[in-house]
């Protein structure tokens, strides 16, 4: 009894456990809340804000907000989907994202999120920032043009790989990902098998020499939208 916390998401009664976030409880119930900075196995971060939900009428990030008994959560509403779409569009114009020749195309969570939201082109003007590429490492490439500052690589490197290869430097619009060396990724102790590398949702951290390996039509998001795996649990159960 005390191990269950009952609350509502879009009118559906959900059972969560103490200490869970709204996102974790929703995932288990087969309800997908869109997200980009959240990643299984990493501590909640609350940076991208794509998972914004209304909790008793107040906006909160579902990835950081703990479940609480009796709360009323709104997730799949027109208003929230609109706000989330705006945030995804902001990410597109903030960096330099060229999906048509990006190795990550079809497997990219940002691109998949745009498709899920039906975004063909952003309404915001492109900011075309000047960002650099670090190809110093023999096996790994950093392209900061495609970084969405989700902080997954930072957390994966420290929490999962037991290293501290990445951290943010600068602030505001000048914030960017830096490596634990004077300048080059090659001078860090990163390895191509590190989870920091595979945790990148976009094409900002890439393994070299494996681009375009999967043909179009067989890529992760070619047939089913992002979040389908979570929603599948609910469809199967209902």
């Amino acid at each position: 009894m005390s191990n269950t916390i009952t609350f509502m998401i879009d009118g559906v009664e959900i059972e969560g456990k103490p200490g869970q976030t709204i996102m974790q409880a929703a995932d288990e119930a087969g309800i997908y809340i869109p997200r980009l900075c959240a990643f299984k196995g990493l501590s909640p971060y609350g940076a991208c804000r794509v998972c914004t939900v209304m909790v008793n009428g107040r906006p909160q990030a579902a990835c950081t907000q703990p479940v609480a008994p009796g709360t009323v959560v709104e997730n799949d509403t027109e208003r929230l989907q609109h706000l989330r779409g705006n945030i995804v569009e902001m990410m597109f114009v903030e960096g330099n994202h060229y999906c048509m020749f990006c190795e990550k195309s079809g497997n990219c969570e940002l691109q998949a999120m745009a498709y899920r939201f039906g975004i063909a082109a952003p309404k915001y003007p492109y900011l075309f920032p000047e960002r650099d590429v670090d190809a110093s490492h023999p096996d790994i490439l950093i392209d900061r043009n495609r970084c969405i500052l989700c902080g997954r690589c930072i957390r994966a490197s420290s929490d999962l790989d037991g290293k501290n290869v990445f951290q943010f430097v600068g602030r505001g619009k000048d914030k960017q990902i830096a490596v634990n060396a004077e300048a080059r990724l090659a001078d860090t102790d990163i390895d191509v098998t590190d989870q920091a590398v595979s945790s990148c949702p976009v094409g900002a951290i890439l393994k070299k020499r494996v681009g375009y390996a999967v043909p179009i039509g067989e890529r992760l998001y070619d047939h089913k939208p992002i979040g389908s795996d979570i929603e599948a649990a609910r469809t199967a159960g209902s």
């Binding site: 940076a47 991208c48 902001m90 990410m91 114009v93 903030e94 943010f168 602030r171 505001g172 619009k173």
Partner: peptide, 14 residues
Amino acid sequence: SCGYCTPCRVGNVL
């Protein structure tokens, strides 16, 4: 802006 979250980091520029 500290730049931690997307809407504040990008939105104010827009």
